[in-house]
């Protein structure tokens, strides 16, 4: 199985833009970016992503809340998930990792190496599931 489609949610338009560019241009992935969890939930079923990339702190649904909703959908019930977070405090990371098949990539990240990092994390999660 190849990592191809990535569903990405981030409320920060600039970050969303840069990440989108990085993943598309450098990683060569097919990325659908949404500014909120609600938007993502609407599109998820149709898009059927290989990876969920979620910002944690967002207005409305937070990252973990969005993931919980996505898990209720057939298409994303078991899709590997990665949180992007500036909260690098250990216990918070631990809490996030308790979500099944989820990992954490801390902010700030290096856009040049982000695709590689994400691929690595996805591979581990995909093997796990």
């Amino acid at each position: 199985m190849e990592l191809n489609k990535i569903l990405y949610v981030d409320d920060e338009p600039d970050v969303r833009h840069v990440v989108l560019l990085s993943l598309e241009t450098i990683g060569g992935y097919q990325v659908e970016a949404f500014e909120s969890g609600a938007d993502a939930l609407e599109a998820a079923e149709t898009f059927a992503p290989d990876l969920l990339l979620l910002d944690v702190m967002m207005p409305g649904l937070t990252g973990p809340e969005t993931l919980a909703k996505l898990r209720e959908l057939g298409a994303t019930a078991q899709t590997p998930a990665i949180f992007l977070t500036a909260k690098a405090q250990t216990h918070e990371v631990e809490k996030l990792k308790q979500n099944e098949s989820a990992d954490v990539v801390p902010k700030p990240f290096d856009v040049m190496t982000l695709p590689t990092t994400i691929h690595g994390a996805w591979t581990k999660l995909a093997d796990f599931t």
């Binding site: 600039d14 990085s22 856009v111």
Partner: peptide
């Protein structure tokens, strides 16, 4: 932590993308 890092991520990400020559 969040508020500073987010713009910084954008700045550095943009610069790095520009610098990478992909555009």
């Amino acid at each position: 932590s969040h508020e500073l890092r987010t713009p910084l991520t954008v700045i550095k990400g943009s610069l790095d993308l520009v610098r990478s020559g992909v555009f």
